[in-house]
Design a protein around this nucleic acid. Sequence first.
DNA 1: GCACATCTGAATCGATCGGTACGGAAGGGG
DNA 2: CCCCTTCCGTACCGATCGATTCAGATGTGC
Lengths: 206, 206
Amino acid sequence: MIDRMETRRKSSIGRPRGFDTEEALERAMRVFWEQGYEGASLADLTNAMGITRTSMYAAFGNKEDLFRKALERYTEGPASYADRAQREPTARQVATAFLNGSVWATTRPGCPAGCFGVQGSLAAGDPGRSARDALIAWRNEGTLRLCGRFQRAIDEGDLPPDTDPELLARYLMTVANGIAVQAASGATRDELQQVADMALRSWPPA
Amino acid sequence: MIDRMETRRKSSIGRPRGFDTEEALERAMRVFWEQGYEGASLADLTNAMGITRTSMYAAFGNKEDLFRKALERYTEGPASYADRAQREPTARQVATAFLNGSVWATTRPGCPAGCFGVQGSLAAGDPGRSARDALIAWRNEGTLRLCGRFQRAIDEGDLPPDTDPELLARYLMTVANGIAVQAASGATRDELQQVADMALRSWPPA
DNA sequence: GCACATCTGAATCGATCGGTACGGAAGGGG
DNA sequence: CCCCTTCCGTACCGATCGATTCAGATGTGC
């Protein structure tokens, strides 16, 4: 009852866990991704994970914790393009990689269409408010990281000194969010790639 | 039991309704807008509407019908900027009015932040799937109408003949959807107006 | 005033919600 | 081997879900 909600086990004594927590989390992530926090019931989740309620609670804590861990996995998995984009050498390449990555991630065959960080919980009632707030923070952190990267680009002379890094970051995040919504609406990868290309046409000249 | 789900009453006999259906629908719209279809419980809705469950069912049918009627009201109310934008004389003015309107509508003081057509139901489980599909259709219809408007602009010589009207329409809808998500994330009207202005910089020259 | 259609409110429906308690099964350390 | 810890499946918890039923109140048309 103390800290059993940790995914990692603290000792090797006792019967070992009978399922792969990483794979179970992957399955849970996809359910949240597809149905959202409030739309995903415990029955949906445990069914997809292939385990019982009890095992889920022992391994992950509760539904909210499971959602947060699924978000972490999403960040390091399908959304890892964001991290990679940050490491591109120029601001323009960062922007291009970021939008291309968002197109790619939101239209991956075999994965739900759209972005976990958007449709996981955009609006919610009381019980799902904490999940919604977690995603709001997640999106805003992404914007902030982009902003910091563009500030660096300004300092390095890669962008004009009168550039507004916040605007650039918010612009990119806005387009990426829109791409996610469009992907959830059935837009294809090709169509969204064209949109991303067009969005980059308003990027400040290198 | 036949068609009592109509908002309009078919006869004047009997006890008249004790509440204003339009105002009740307005209140319901805001609840769906703020909490989404699945996040809005009957208790939330009827509480905000100031009526009982029974009155709601008698006047609107059921939760799903109420949602559809709320969407109609949203279309003709807060989202009426889309219709108005279509009637602008040039394609560029259409695009400008559309994005400006979306910024304005998603950040209206006294209204929930964001767009009903996006956060009303972006992802959902089985029970909310029909609401989700209704909003998908709603967004795609908006794109289609923009596309038709830009096709007309091409025919009129307002846009170059090699323009892809679908791409322009999808681009605008993508940016508007992104603006909605950003508004739901706490972005201010000024910030989003800057984003909209920047998005229009990639518009084909007049 | 009468008869009737409709509205209203409370009580209730079965189903499902997220979350738990319990007991048997199963594996590791001595 | 035994003990002990942990896992796992079932059955169940109170609360809430959307939806309905029913009696009583209320207003309209005759």
